[in-house]
Computed example of a mutant assay.
Amino acid sequence: MRSMLAAAGFAMLAAQAAVAQTPLRTAVDGTFAPHAMPKLSGGIEGFNVDLAEALGKKLGRPVTVDTAQFSGLIPALQAGTYDFLVAPVTVNKERAENLLFTEGYLNSDFQFVTKKGAPLITKLEDLRGKVVAVNKGSSYDSWAREMADKIGWKVESYGTQTDAVQAVLANRAFANVAGSTVLQWAAKNNPQIQLSLLHSTGFVWAIALRKDAVALRKDLDQAIECLKADGTIAALHEKWFGVKPAAGAVSVTVDTGYGVPGMPNYDPTPHAAACRG
């Protein structure tokens, strides 16, 4: 009898070890710098690539990161191709009704850049009568146009984000508005531009999972909490964006539940993260 129990115990341990070594599958848009972008030596690098590696270490499991167009990532997740999405996914009500999300790891805010030495923008109204450059078709394009009558700025759209920044450098626009992390990275690498007003949207980026992945959501949520607590996410923020997270930013603030507060499928159950590695 004892031998049978021992054999069953060994089999269970072997099965658990096999699961621990099974890679978790995830993906990013490999053209979204500085979150994921090609390396000159081959492969990809970026904030979210490093985040995937750090999550794997906390979970004690390997993580494989594929690249694909962003438009195909959520359908591929729902089809079972991926276990979760480490690509930046903005959490909104519609998405949260159809997916599970971990707590946020970055604020999804807007930021303005201007030419080096220009007066700093302290409020949106400072841009009254000025030209704001945007990437055509982006969420920043539609937002800036929606605000045009209220603020009194003129919006000029450009084919790429690079072209929008170039418009500022060429004095065709006073400022460019885009995602905060994208512009923080741009300012870090281009001394001719400077960061200006940060505009909060109230949204965050979080890891997306299928609605049936409740256990994995809990594991990933706790791993993110551990990476916040030990300073890993803050260090990646400074490495890739060139600035430290602001006090109270979601990248350094641990939530007591699972998911994004105020969104569908948020689980408010308090817990203590079991951190490893």
Rank of each mutant, 00 (worst) to 15 (best):
M1A: 14
A6T: 09
A8S: 13
A8T: 08
G9N: 12
M12I: 12
A15V: 05
Q16G: 03
A18I: 03
Q21A: 15
P23G: 06
R25S: 11
G30A: 10
P34S: 07
E45K: 08
G46Q: 05
A54Q: 12
L55Y: 06
G60Y: 05
V63L: 11
T67D: 11
G72M: 05
G80K: 07
T81N: 07
D83W: 08
F84I: 05
T90F: 06
A96I: 10
N98M: 13
F101M: 12
Y105L: 10
N107V: 01
Q111N: 01
L120E: 14
L124A: 05
V131I: 15
V131G: 09
V132I: 15
A133M: 05
Y140H: 13
K150M: 03
Y158E: 01
Q161L: 05
Q166V: 01
A167K: 02
V168S: 01
V168H: 04
A170I: 04
R172N: 08
F174K: 00
N176V: 03
V177L: 02
V177S: 03
G179F: 04
S180D: 12
S180K: 00
V182I: 14
L183W: 03
W185V: 00
K188V: 00
N190W: 05
Q192D: 13
S200F: 00
S200A: 10
G202V: 02
G202N: 03
V204D: 06
R210K: 10
D212G: 03
V214K: 08
A215R: 11
L216P: 07
R217C: 01
D219L: 10
L220R: 06
G231K: 10
A235E: 11
P245V: 09
P245R: 11
G248D: 08
A249R: 08
T253G: 07
D255N: 15
Y258D: 07
G259K: 12
P261D: 04
G262P: 06
P264V: 11
Y266A: 12
P270D: 01
A272H: 14
A273Y: 03
A274D: 09
